[in-house]
């Protein structure tokens, strides 16, 4: 049985559950049986750790709940086996936040080109190193730090 570390209610009345990441799959299975659907996955960079936040929605009760998981090694178990919608959301979080979802079959970048260096929504991402994108005749994208080789 999973263990909820703390439970709180935010300003809008939404229930927020803080759990350990080893309990994540078990809790999500429980909520899936209670007809909750995955609404979104987001990540927050807190500098010493990363919070991964799952929003679940029940259509019958019109109830939103929020599940927060904290990770220090940037790894979180994947929930793509439960909801197929998580495939795209987890790829986006991997792309922009650099969170590795263990068990995801196709974890690669979705918004940025594959050669992009770094994860832009992280606090330690250096905005001064500007990267430029170009496409060759075969449709392959190239990323370069030289502004003459792309836009």
């Amino acid at each position: 049985m999973y263990k909820i570390i703390s439970e709180e209610t935010d300003k809008s009345g939404m229930k927020v559950l803080n759990i350990d990441k080893s309990d994540l799959i078990e809790l999500m299975e429980d909520y899936k049986d209670r007809k909750y659907f995955l609404s979104s996955i987001t990540g927050v960079d807190m500098k010493d750790h990363i919070d991964v936040i799952y929003h679940l929605h029940n259509f019958d009760k019109n109830d939103y709940i929020c599940v927060k998981v904290s990770t220090t090694d940037e790894k979180v178990p994947s929930i793509t086996k439960l909801w197929k919608a998580a495939i795209v959301d987890e790829r986006e979080q991997y792309d922009l936040m650099g969170i590795t979802f263990e068990g995801h079959d196709n974890l690669r970048r979705i918004l940025l080109p594959d050669d992009w260096v770094g994860h832009p929504l992280r606090k330690d991402y250096d905005l001064n190193k500007v990267q430029y994108v170009s496409v060759d005749r075969d449709g392959n994208e190239h990323v370069s730090f030289d502004d003459k080789e792309g836009w």
């Binding site: 918004l111 940025l112 080109p113 430029y132 994108v133 170009s134 496409v135 994208e141 792309g150 836009w151």
Partner: peptide, 10 residues
């Protein structure tokens, strides 16, 4: 966006 720019050029 930078990803759209090569397509826009084309």
């Amino acid at each position: 966006t930078k990803r759209m720019a090569p397509r826009l050029k084309r």
